[in-house]
C-alpha cells in the first residue's frame, strides 16, 4: 500500500544539507515528469519557495533538454533555483553532448577507477526512519515508509504502521504493523508488548487473554513459521 503510493510519483524530493534533492526515477516521458513536478511544487509552493534544488539524474540518462525544462519549471512554479546537476557514472550522454557543443571529443581521466573506488551509496529512494518523540494516544495513526521509532507509549486505539521495523521505547498497547509492504523479516521491538493486535507483513496475531508478566528489559515480536512470536528479554 505504501509502496504503491510512492511509485505513483516519478521522482523523490529529499531534504539535503545544501537544499532539496530532486531524484528522478527511471525513464518516464518528459511531459509526464514535468506535469507531476508542477503539481507537487504548486501543492507545496510556500514550502519550496526560494529554495535551492539539486537535480539528481543518476537513475536516468542525461538529457540537456530535460534539464532546461526542469530548470524553467522550478523557477516559474515556485521560484526555486537549480543549484547543481548530478549525473550518474554512465554519463556518456553528457560527453557526447559536450562533444557536440564543442565539436571535439570529450572524455574524463580516471573516471573508471574512481567509480570503482567510490563507496556504495544507499539506493536512491531509501527513506530515513521516522522518529516520533511523544506518546501516541488513541486515534493517532502514524505511517512510515521505512523504520518507525516511537519515543513514548503507544496507547490502545492508536495505529502505527511501518514498511520496516518498529521500535517503541515505551509500552505498546495499540495496533502495530511492521513490514507493511510485505517484509516478513521485519520485527517489532518494545519495552513492553501488550498490544491490541500485532501485524507483521501479512501475518496477524491477537495477544492471549489475561495479563502477562512484564519483561525485565524488552520484548521483540517476529514471524516464526507462519506465526508471530513475542520473546521477552
Amino acid at each position: 500500500m505504501l509502496g504503491r503510493m510512492r511509485d505513483t510519483l516519478p521522482f523523490v524530493i529529499k531534504a539535503d544539507r545544501e537544499g532539496f534533492l530532486l531524484i528522478v526515477n527511471g525513464e518516464i516521458p518528459l511531459p509526464d515528469l514535468l506535469e507531476a513536478l508542477r503539481t507537487k511544487l504548486e501543492e507545496s509552493k510556500a514550502f519550496f519557495q526560494n529554495s535551492r534544488m539539486i537535480l539528481d539524474l543518476r537513475r536516468r540518462t542525461f538529457d540537456p533538454d530535460e534539464i532546461h525544462a526542469v530548470r524553467a519549471l522550478l523557477e516559474q512554479a515556485a521560484g526555486v533555483e537549480l543549484a547543481e546537476v548530478r549525473l550518474g557514472s554512465s554519463n556518456g550522454a553528457f560527453f557526447r553532448w559536450a562533444g557536440a557543443v564543442l565539436g571535439v571529443k570529450v572524455s574524463l581521466e580516471g573516471e573508471r577507477e574512481r567509480a570503482a573506488a567510490a563507496p556504495q551509496e544507499p539506493p536512491p529512494g531509501a527513506e530515513p526512519p521516522l522518529v516520533v518523540r511523544q506518546t501516541c494516544r488513541s486515534g493517532t495513526r502514524i505511517e512510515s515508509p521505512a523504520e518507525l521509532v516511537i519515543l513514548g507509549d503507544v496507547n490502545p486505539g492508536a495505529e502505527i504502521i511501518a514498511a520496516g521495523d518498529i521500535v517503541v521505547f515505551g509500552t505498546l498497547r495499540g495496533v502495530a504493523h511492521a513490514g507493511a509492504e510485505g517484509d516478513r523479516s521485519a520485527k517489532i521491538w518494545a519495552l513492553h508488548i501488550e498490544p491490541q493486535q500485532l501485524r507483521i507483513a501479512d501475518v496477524v496475531a491477537l495477544p492471549p487473554r489475561g495479563r502477562k508478566p512484564k519483561p525485565k528489559r524488552y520484548e521483540v515480536a517476529e514471524v516464526k513459521g507462519d506465526l508471530i512470536q513475542v520473546v521477552s528479554y
Binding site: R137, T140, N155, P156, G157
Partner: peptide, 16 residues
C-alpha cells in the same frame, strides 16, 4: 472503565 479511559486518552491527544 476501559471505554472511558480510551476516550479520555483520545481527548488528551486532541487537547495537546
Amino acid at each position: 472503565e476501559v471505554s472511558a479511559i480510551r476516550d479520555a486518552d483520545r481527548v488528551i491527544g486532541l487537547l495537546e
